[in-house]
Design a binder for these strands. Structure first.
Lengths: 189, 189
DNA sequence: CTCTGGATAGAGCGTTCGTTCTAGATATCA
DNA sequence: TGATATCTAGAACGAACGCTCTATCCAGAG
């Protein structure tokens, strides 16, 4: 077998949660989409639906981080690098038919009150992405406090622009945000 | 009766959808929270759950717009006005125990594939808020294309920062975003 | 070969979902 | 008063939910 059953479950869950949210995704739907049975899902994830979702979110986290890393390292100038992130996200979003946005936003919002493991995974993802950007800005010579604050805003903006792009079914919000972020970064030299 | 049954239903639905999303909110829960019965809900909203949600989102839209309007008109300088928006949102978010964020994000993400009325209501809300900010920037003397692009980014950033603030249970992301947006706006004079 | 434990398979549990439906309460006007 | 429309009330339905449970399959160890 090329991909293990467990991996197929995580992959399918990641895609579904990303598109329909945590509550909107059924565990039977995950099983069907992964070409697995309910028994297999509960075998690999005795924690049930929440455990599957946590694994799915961590997978999405890593995927998103990979996109960011590649874009951030692809440009010499930090402003251009940030704009490249927005462009990468826009391209990926369009390619998916506007469905595969940020892998954590939906799940995070649905589980706000509940201090579940899902919340933690989402918070970890956000912090990790922010660190990625902050490191890049540090390497570009920004002061540490500036880098941290700017990185936080960059991630928030990308996050928000992604949602806007999904709702309006256009990559323009992301491209706009990229241009404005580049302009903002440029003010720090 | 002080508030009509219909209004209580819309209010309760708005709060619940804002906190738990569209899928995560049951129509019976809405009825209970609004001190109404299922019969009343279906009497006022023959369109069922979706119709209730649309009304709830439009209500949240107006509420959010009011916050923006007040903050935007509260400052002389446009940069300070935008930063004021972020501060207002931060205060309101903290006051709600980090639960009452943007009234459309969750619902919008959950209904992405479906070309439902909900999607349209969310898109309308986003566009309306963007227009509010763009008008304010125009009044401050910005060129029309600049105002539009900047306004889009501002709304996206506030949106994303709000989510980040909710997940991290801190107003810092919103305050950071406010400062950075002010800096960005200031580059346009 | 048998034995064993991980993996697969899905019927069925109790619950909740959105919706429908009928019946009763309340108000308005002839 | 009686007639009519509006609103309230909640039982009941089929479908789907997350999860439990037993049964079967099958590769590798002895």
């Amino acid at each position: 077998m090329q991909t293990s059953t467990r991996d197929r479950i995580v992959l399918a869950a990641a895609r579904l949660v990303q598109r329909q949210g945590y509550v909107g995704t059924g565990i039977k739907q995950i099983a069907k989409e992964a070409d697995a049975t309910l028994g297999s899902v509960y075998h690999f994830f005795p924690g049930g639906k929440e455990a599957v979702a946590v694994a799915a979110i961590k997978h999405g986290d890593e995927e998103f981080a990979a996109i960011l890393r590649e874009a951030l390292d692809g440009e010499e100038d930090p402003a251009a690098a940030v704009e490249g992130c927005a462009r990468s996200l826009a391209t990926a979003l369009r390619a998916s038919g506007w469905t595969d946005g940020c892998p954590v936003t939906a799940a995070a919002l649905e589980t706000l009150g509940t201090d579940s493991e899902i919340q933690r995974a989402c918070a970890d993802a956000l912090r990790g992405w922010q660190d990625l950007v902050a490191d890049r800005l540090l390497r570009a010579g920004l002061a540490r406090p500036d880098a941290r604050e700017l990185a936080g805003t960059i991630i928030s903006t990308l996050e928000g622009a992604e949602v806007t792009a999904q709702v309006t079914r256009s990559e323009e919000p992301l491209l706009q945000a990229g241009r404005q972020l580049a302009r903002l970064v440029a003010t720090y030299r």
